[in-house]
Amino acid sequence: MLNKVPQVTLLFWLVKICSTTVGETGADFLNDTLGFGLTGTTLVAAGALAVGLAVQFAVRRYIPAIYWTNVVVISVVGTLFSDNLVDGWGVPLSVSTLIFAVGLAAAFIAWYRSERTLSIHTIVTRRREAFYWIAILFAFALGTSAGDWFAEGMGLGYLPSAAVFAGAIGVVAVARFGFKASEVLTFWIAYVLTRPLGASLGDLFTQSKADGGLGFGTGAVSDAFLLIIVGGVLVFTVQQRSAGRRDRAEQGLVGA
């Protein structure tokens, strides 16, 4: 089958950050505003993820709408995993961050031992695709705990925490493009860091002013970022179709 992961571009990172923000605000919206509760929200989100991933695994190529829907839903599920540990079971944020970091490391080790690569450019088998989504789930859960740990556990606040993670991503970008650091390594570091960045931004926009946020509300913020995601998916779809037409045209010329 064809590679099931999109090309990594600036638009990819923009939509990824928006997806992580929606993961934070969407989980809070379902949990608090709609009154699903933590358990109910987790069940609904996990069920939606199971259906979405079943569709994702059934197709044999990258389809933007399916892929990014799963990214948004798995972001919500990752947030809920962290919230269940911290709010449901009373696990400290520092410990939950460590737990998910170990889980992500274990996923990477198992992936590499099985496939001898962690590259997202070769997600062309069901096994690699499974490892890919497992790693993403742990990355989202880790990012949620880390973001909350910095903002709340360490008392930095939401805006300073967002600035810290944005600065860390900038360092990774300099390492990749300025010093030619490993593409695979820098991609996954940036992927993990965008999650606490998105979580911090989500909390900044939605938490009350008394708690250091801007108080816009989870519903409005989720809708705003979802609109950006939908716009990005539309661009991805147009780009993919244009690339497909070019490939077919080139194949026709070669055949002629």
Rank of each mutant, 00 (worst) to 15 (best):
N3D: 14
I63C: 05
Y132H: 09
V86M: 02
T69I: 14
A175M: 14
M1F: 02
R248T: 12
F36Y: 14
P64M: 12
D32H: 10
I120T: 15
F165W: 00
G213I: 11
A135S: 11
G219D: 06
I189R: 01
L38I: 14
I99T: 08
T125Y: 05
L253C: 04
L38K: 01
W149S: 00
V95P: 01
G52V: 09
S161L: 03
F108C: 11
F100A: 10
A50C: 11
A54V: 01
L253P: 00
W133T: 08
L137D: 03
L93V: 10
G167V: 13
V230K: 10
V238K: 13
S161R: 01
S242I: 15
P160R: 01
R128H: 06
G40H: 01
V76A: 07
R248W: 05
V164C: 03
M1H: 09
G255N: 13
Q207W: 05
R113C: 13
G147R: 01
A110Y: 00
A107G: 08
R127L: 10
P196T: 03
G78V: 13
E152P: 04
R245V: 15
D28V: 12
V71Y: 03
Q239N: 15
D203K: 15
I63R: 06
A249Y: 10
F131N: 00
I228H: 03
A106W: 06
G37H: 01
D87E: 11
F225T: 08
L80R: 00
V171I: 15
V221R: 04
S119P: 07
D87I: 10
L49C: 10
F138E: 06
G255L: 14
V73F: 02
L43A: 12
A27N: 02
R248M: 11
H121G: 14
I66W: 04
V86E: 07
V91S: 05
D211I: 08
S200T: 10
Q56D: 11
Q239I: 13
W149F: 15
R128K: 15
P6T: 11
F179A: 09
V174Y: 02
V124K: 12
D83V: 09
D87G: 00
G147Y: 01
T125W: 06
S82Y: 02
V102G: 10
S82N: 07
V174K: 01
R60E: 11
T186R: 00
H121P: 00
L234Y: 12
W149A: 03
L98E: 09
P160L: 06
G252A: 07
L214M: 15
I134R: 02
V95D: 07
V73W: 02
G153H: 00
T21Y: 07
G103H: 11
A166R: 03
K209I: 15
T42A: 15
L14E: 08
R60C: 02
T125M: 08
T122Y: 06
T21H: 02
I134Q: 01
F179D: 02
T117R: 08
V235D: 12
R126Q: 09
D32I: 13
A48H: 00
N31Y: 04
F81M: 15
A141C: 10
A249L: 12
E24P: 09
S200W: 00
G26M: 03
V8F: 00
G37M: 08
V86H: 14
T33V: 12
